[in-house]
């Protein structure tokens, strides 16, 4: 089934130069392994294709149930150079939470993901 990231994670984003960072945090600790497995660097790069000009890096923080993504070339030059409303990348957080993951029905039920029934 499709699971919207917004329903299983929260997030905060910020900037460093022309790079936006998005920290994605599992709403429940037992959902973190699913994020680590499914929310890959490639998956996030595909999500933001066309919206950023550089690559994507991913770091794992199992201690916080969180993944940290660096989105390069995301901010139109960044800082004061940028003409974007979101020049500091503050709402890349919720832009990422729009992403939908494919999760096997049985696993979704086992993990008691929102909307999984069971």
């Amino acid at each position: 089934m499709k699971i919207r990231l917004l329903d299983i994670a929260h997030a905060r984003s910020g900037d460093k130069g022309d790079t936006a960072n998005v920290g994605v945090i599992a709403l429940e600790p037992q959902w973190y392994p699913l994020l680590e497995r499914e929310l890959t660097r490639e998956r996030v790069a595909r999500h933001f294709a066309g919206a950023i000009t550089g690559g994507v890096e991913r770091y794992e923080l199992p201690n916080l149930g969180a993944l940290n993504f660096l989105l390069h070339g995301a901010l139109g030059g960044g800082g004061t150079l940028s003409l974007k409303t979101d020049a500091q990348g503050k709402v890349f957080s919720t832009a990422l939470l729009r992403l939908e993951l494919d999760v096997p029905d049985a696993e979704a039920r086992h993990l008691r993901l929102p909307g999984a029934g069971g």
């Binding site: 960072n21 920290g23 770091y59």
Partner: peptide, 12 residues
């Protein structure tokens, strides 16, 4: 936790 990941680079 939200603040810890704010403006984070390489967490190591």
């Amino acid at each position: 936790t939200e603040q810890l990941v704010y403006e984070m680079g390489d967490p190591h």
